[in-house]
Design a protein around this nucleic acid. Structure first.
Lengths: 124, 124
DNA sequence: CTGCATCCACACGGATACTG
DNA sequence: CAGTATCCGTGTGGATGCAG
């Protein structure tokens, strides 16, 4: 998403802490051109994988985008990053339990899309 | 979402028709700053509502964005647009059955977010 | 090998003015 | 009232070069 959905709570109370819409927060979490491809690939793989291995699996993603998105997921606790002090450097990424817990929800998205997707007129 | 997820199928076969990832397609569908607020509002309301009424309900959305997003949903068959030849002009929008069918899926997103959302570190 | 820094194109989304 | 047209700031994401 584009820009990225700064989260605008519909009809917010006059004052105090505003509570962001969970659905909007969710979409924010998995927005971005490569978010789902990366996340789902890590979920399916399950075990730790090297950066370059991941990049080949999700080609043609750029290093910049892969790094950026992985760091975002890491901050969210969806992905764990393991750095090995070696030469050449080795960095491995693995989905966390929290990340894995997303699977059923993501599958339900896919299910709806597969079921009703063909009814959708313009796919752009 | 960031600019908007042009849909890049991971690991595409050498030739023939490429099949887009359903999850990516789904996120594309509900990406954009105001997509979810508009869609869910229409789902909850259920009946036809006037443009201005909708705009007030989802404030502070601009006319431009509301129009653009509604037209997108219309093309996808999620929203029906009814124009009345009157003065002053009256245009009403209503969620379709296809749009309503999204509700359980959207609710499951919200459920996951409410359940695991607090575990997520950075909310930016 | 990993990933940061830089430059850049462009699409999203806001503000405003104008039309039927 | 509903919608279009225009201008513009800014985020996103690609390409490339460089560093540890």
């Amino acid at each position: 998403m584009p820009h990225h959905i700064p989260a605008a709570p519909p009809s917010s109370p006059p004052s105090g802490t505003i509570e962001p819409c969970p659905m909007v927060s969710f979409v924010n979490l998995v927005s971005g051109k490569w978010a789902i491809p990366i996340l789902y690939r890590l979920i399916v793989i399950g075990v730790a994988v090297r950066f370059s291995e991941l990049q080949r699996a999700i080609a043609p993603i750029t290093q910049k985008e892969l790094t950026r998105q992985l760091r975002l997921f890491e901050r969210r606790g969806l992905v764990r990053r393991q750095v090995y002090a070696e030469v050449p450097p080795r960095v491995e990424y693995q989905i966390t339990a929290l990340g894995q817990s997303l699977r059923p929800t993501l599958d339900s998205l896919a299910d709806w899309m597969r079921t009703h997707g063909e009814a959708l007129a313009g796919d752009d």
